[in-house]
Design a protein around this nucleic acid. Structure first.
Lengths: 166, 166
DNA sequence: AAAAACCCTATCGGCTTTATGGAGATTCAA
DNA sequence: TTGAATCTCCATAAAGCCGATAGGGTTTTT
């Protein structure tokens, strides 16, 4: 389950990705209050989240009168998977199924044969395949697409089937 | 993230799926102590989990001397997705991306346009696609396959690619 | 020096997780 | 009918996490 923190963080970065930089110039910083407003996140909580995102190098901050936060890199280069990993940790449903943060179960005699682990590894792979190729630029584009989610030809990497329940 | 409860529950049911019924007879029940041993789960904790699984109709219990727990249905008919939903709740990373338990975010003005929701919906779909077609019978088969996980031709539904980190 | 903004620490209630212990109920077998 | 094995239920509880807030400190610009 994605935490609120990660959800707000994603929304905030999506908002920042929508800021159009003047050509040749760095992006203008946006104050927390405005980010919170557009991302529909609690201001003070978002403050802590942005601090975290800054420490992880996703955003730069500027103090003082006209200060605020701005993306540290172009939105197309920031992947959703990296953001979620920074805030919530590994994508895998259980640690023993993670590649970036593998940790065997305490009392598992043989991870190589564990069927639960193998299935969760499949889930991890499927999740990573989606989030590793979705960037903030994709997010921003989707947000302003037509309601149905069926984007014309552009940003949707591979059309998702809406089938089984969850 | 899968809870410990769900993980132990899956392992316990996998253990029960490995019990071979005598032809024409119902499966013999297995006492908690033995299940705990084979599933590598804490006995008392597992007790609470099995109680839960019984209330959800996955297992039947038998009291008394030769009592214990047994699967309520053939292992091929019990899907991993159903077990996880019963114990941990929806598969979707966030409630607004769930089909079985949809709940909009408190302050989201328009879920239809939310890009975060759309991406999480893709993740949910991918996860459900895997877990909906994996049964306890598949789990039991995998557990006893060769170490690598590359099953000869049988139980593996669709070979998983082990690529990107998570 | 005042205003605007970020920076940091502390705190806090509530909830979930992960159990543990023990009393009681049920069944089978001797 | 007694006893032993087993499941059932309830109460408790420590620990950690989550979501959020408060308040004061620091930096920068005007």
């Amino acid at each position: 389950m994605l935490t609120q923190k990660a959800k707000y963080g994603l929304q905030a970065l999506r908002v920042l990705a929508e800021v159009e930089p003047a050509p040749g110039l760095p992006r203008a910083p946006m104050p927390i209050a405005e980010i919170a407003d557009r991302a529909h996140a609690p201001r003070k909580f978002l403050e802590a989240i942005l601090l975290d995102l800054r420490r992880h190098g996703f955003v730069d901050s500027l103090r003082g009168k006209a200060g605020g936060y701005a993306l540290a890199r172009p939105p197309a280069e920031i992947m959703v998977s990296a953001i979620i990993r920074a805030i919530d940790g590994p994508l895998a449903p259980i640690p023993c199924a993670s590649l970036t943060a593998y940790r065997p179960c305490a009392d598992c005699p043989d991870p190589a044969h564990c069927a639960v682990r193998q299935v969760m590894r499949q889930v991890r792979d499927a999740t990573a395949a989606i989030l590793d190729r979705t960037s903030l630029a994709d997010l921003a584009a989707r947000e302003h697409a037509v309601a149905d989610g069926a984007l014309p030809g552009a940003a949707a990497p591979v059309a998702a089937r809406d089938t089984s329940p969850a």
